[in-house]
Nucleic acid binder design. Structure first.
Lengths: 227, 227
DNA sequence: TTAATACTTCGGTTAGCATCGAACTATGAA
DNA sequence: TTCATAGTTCGATGCTAACCGAAGTATTAA
C-alpha cells in the first residue's frame, strides 16, 4: 500500500503533459535551460518553472547553474531507463496511427536514445551483432561475448574501462518507433561516440536526430554486412 | 512532443494513488477481483470500478470474467517491468520509511524475478557464493569460477548444458526491495529449479512469492553457511 | 421467482493543481 | 548606475478528475 504511494508519487510527476514533454525533450541527453523547456512543453515561463521545481524536488531532474542560465538534465540513468520503459508500454498499447512527418522520419531512421543509437539504424546494428554472435541475447538480457569483445576493441572501444564502471556494459532497450530492441548500456553509448568521433554521424543541434554523413552511412552499412 | 503525450498518458494512469495501489497489489502476479482491489486501494466499489475501467482501456490491465467475478491482472510482462522500474526510481529517491505489511514481507523475503530467486534470500545466496569464490564479480559482470562449477555440479546442475546455451550463465540482477544484487542467468534459474525439485521451496500460486518449506529453509541456510 | 452477490453507470460535489499575469530576484552588459 | 535577460514567487482563476450514494445490470443460489 505504501508501495502504491511511492509509485503514484513518481508516476504523477511524469503524468502531466507539460512535464512529460520536458522529460521527453531531455531524453536526448542534452541539458536544456528553463526557457527552452518551457518552449518545448508549450507553456509560459512561470508554469515551466513550477514544473521544473517539482521534477527537481522529486529527484527526476538535476539542475546546474551557469551564469544566468539554469540547465536541467535527467537525474541519472535510472530515470532515463524508467522513461524509456514507460515509452515502451505507450508504444505497445498506443493507437500508433500517427503518420510521421519528414522530421519524424529522420527520428525513426536514427536518433539518440539518452546516449546511444536508436531507430532503424540502431535496430539493424543490434541485429547484426546478435547474428554474428558478438552479443548473446536471452530475452531481456544481453551479454558481451568474447568474440564480441575482440571486435569492439578493434573498433576502438575500451571494454575494460566499461567493465569497471557500475553501468551495465550491455543492455537492450525497446524502441518505441519500431518496437524492436537496440543496443544500450555503455557499449551502446561507446559505439555512438565512436561513430561521431569517426565522423560517420553527427547529432543534429537541439534534437535527438542523428544524421549520418554519406561516407559514414556507407561505412556503417559495410560494417553491418561484414559483421 | 507526441512522445511526451504518450508518456503522460501512461504515467498519469499510474500516477493516481488509488490506481497505483491496485497496480502494486497486482505486482504479486495474482489476479484479483474488483472488490479486492477496491479494498486494497481504500476506495468504494464505484470508484474502484471507474479506475479499473481506465486501467483496462489504457492497456495496463487485462480482465477475465469468471461467473459473477471479474479478475484483473497486469496486462503483460512489459507493464510489470515498467512498474518495477518506476519503483526502482522511487526507491532511490524516496524517503525509505516503508513499514512493509505481512504480504510485502513475504515478497521481500523471497520472490521470483523472471525465473530466478530474488529478495533477501536471493541476495544472501549471491553474497555467500561470492564470499566463497564460487562466482567472481567484476562490478556488473559475474562469472563462474572453476571452484564454483564444481560446487554447482555437485548440487545437481548441468553446467555444461548451460554453457552451450546462448543465455549468459551468470548475471547479476538488481533487487528493488533491498537494492542489492542477486544471481540471475541460467545459473540463477537452475538453482531455483533445484530448490523446487528438492522440495526446499515452492511457488505460491498466482503470485511471485516463493515459500520455503521449514526443512528447506534449514537446508538453504546450512548451504549458505557451509558455502 | 425471489433474493443475494458482484459489479457498473449516473449525477452531483469537491478538491487539487495546472495555468497565467504581474511583481520580484539575480546575473550580466553598457 | 541603468538596462536587459533569465528565472522565481505570488495570487487568482478555471478545469479536470477523484469521489461517493443511489440506482441499474448481470450472474448465481434458493
Amino acid at each position: 500500500m505504501k508501495a502504491g504511494t511511492d509509485l503514484a508519487q513518481i508516476a504523477s510527476l511524469v503524468g502531466d503533459p507539460a512535464r512529460a514533454n520536458m522529460l521527453a525533450a531531455l531524453m536526448g541527453g542534452a541539458a536544456l535551460t528553463a526557457s527552452e523547456l518551457a518552449l518545448e512543453a508549450g507553456v509560459t515561463l512561470p508554469t515551466a518553472s513550477s514544473h521544473l521545481a517539482k521534477l527537481t524536488d522529486g529527484g527526476l531532474l538535476r539542475m546546474t547553474r551557469q551564469g544566468r542560465h539554469r540547465y536541467y538534465a535527467l537525474a541519472d540513468h535510472q530515470v532515463a531507463g524508467m522513461l524509456e520503459s514507460i515509452m515502451g508500454v505507450a508504444a505497445t498499447v498506443g493507437p500508433r496511427k500517427v503518420l510521421p512527418g519528414p522530421r519524424d522520419n529522420a527520428m525513426r531512421e536514427a536518433r539518440i536514445c539518452y546516449d546511444h543509437l536508436a531507430g532503424a539504424a540502431g535496430v539493424a546494428m543490434f541485429d547484426a551483432f546478435a547474428e554474428r554472435g558478438f552479443i548473446a541475447i536471452d530475452n531481456e538480457d544481453v551479454s558481451l561475448t568474447d568474440k564480441g569483445a575482440g571486435f569492439f576493441r578493434d573498433f576502438g572501444l575500451d571494454i575494460e574501462a566499461m567493465r569497471k564502471k557500475r553501468r551495465p556494459v550491455c543492455r537492450s532497450c525497446l524502441d518505441w518507433s519500431v518496437r524492436r530492441a537496440h543496443l544500450a548500456g555503455s557499449l551502446g553509448a561507446g559505439m555512438l561516440d565512436r561513430f561521431i568521433a569517426l565522423n560517420w554521424a553527427r547529432r543534429e543541434k537541439d534534437s535527438r536526430v542523428i544524421r549520418f554523413t554519406p561516407p559514414g552511412r556507407a561505412a556503417f552499412e559495410k560494417m553491418l554486412r561484414t559483421v
